[in-house]
Design a protein around this nucleic acid. Structure first.
Lengths: 140, 140
DNA sequence: TATTAAACTTAGCTGAGGCTAACTTTAGTG
DNA sequence: CACTAAAGTTAGCCTCAGCTAAGTTTAATA
């Protein structure tokens, strides 16, 4: 039987980008009070035009608010998404470090992996971080 | 400083699709001797037109060979890619199961995660599977 | 204050990966 | 053998995420 639930289509890819953006926007606001397009240009290494497009789409989707020549801020929805993404990102990264992966690799891999980690897997990682891995301890 | 190495652009996304496809093609060949478009249609739940497009792109990129109305086979390059993807996929899935994640979730998550797991992280997972997690055992 | 540089916007292009609809080929079956 | 159903192709459309190039606004400074 075919694997099914391969519904990781374009819409999923789109929301991955949005997740990365809300996270970066929250970071910029935390660090400097506001987020300007140039912050995102620097962060994602894309052109201003690309950032503009993406931010416009995010505004259309109710994740950010912005006006011409004004800074970008997060809506409540955007903030919620950022908080979730951040938490997810941090747990995955901490878990990789716990696994013995280097700081650099953990940073890169966690950025890619965070969008594909379900709540269940996230809980399993959190559990491993706080309690160790049950199957390991139960068979000493 | 901005995070950098956020070069997870379109080309990366494209090769993720290619990886999924070579894996599915290898599976179909292993199971039935040949791979036909319909196998991929069933597997990815997309239309024949989409499969056709994707397979054409993969042929352009030297991953598969096919001719009109003929089955799809893998080139040496395609086979290599499939073998790597399969191995990666299996390790990630086994690791998630080891972590205590359910079969269903491990299947879904490993499909998404495999493309973002570096060799270093993969080695760490393999190590954990065979030797357990060092930091856990060293601090009893 | 006038000018310039940096930030931002807009228009228009590309390619990937989706789609539908219409057509052709291949393979079975009456 | 003729016909039909299934498989495959082709054409044409869409969105997202990238780009360049050109114009506009804002901010800094001579």
């Amino acid at each position: 039987m075919p694997s099914k639930s391969h519904q990781r289509t374009r819409s999923d890819h789109a929301s991955e980008v949005a997740e990365d953006y809300v996270e970066a926007i929250a970071d910029a606001i935390a660090a400097q009070g506001v987020c300007r397009s140039m912050d995102l240009v620097a962060h994602f290494q894309v052109t201003h035009a690309t950032v503009n497009n993406t931010v416009a789409r995010m505004q259309r989707d109710g994740l950010v608010t912005t006006a011409p020549y004004q800074p970008i801020s997060l809506t409540a929805k955007g903030k919620r998404m950022a908080a979730k993404a951040r938490q997810r990102h941090e747990i995955v990264k901490a878990f990789l470090r716990y696994l013995g992966v280097s700081e650099t690799t953990a940073t890169v891999d966690s950025e890619g992996m965070e969008h594909h980690v379900s709540d269940e897997t996230l809980r399993a990682m959190k559990r491993a971080l706080t309690e160790g891995i049950p199957t390991l301890r139960d068979v000493p």
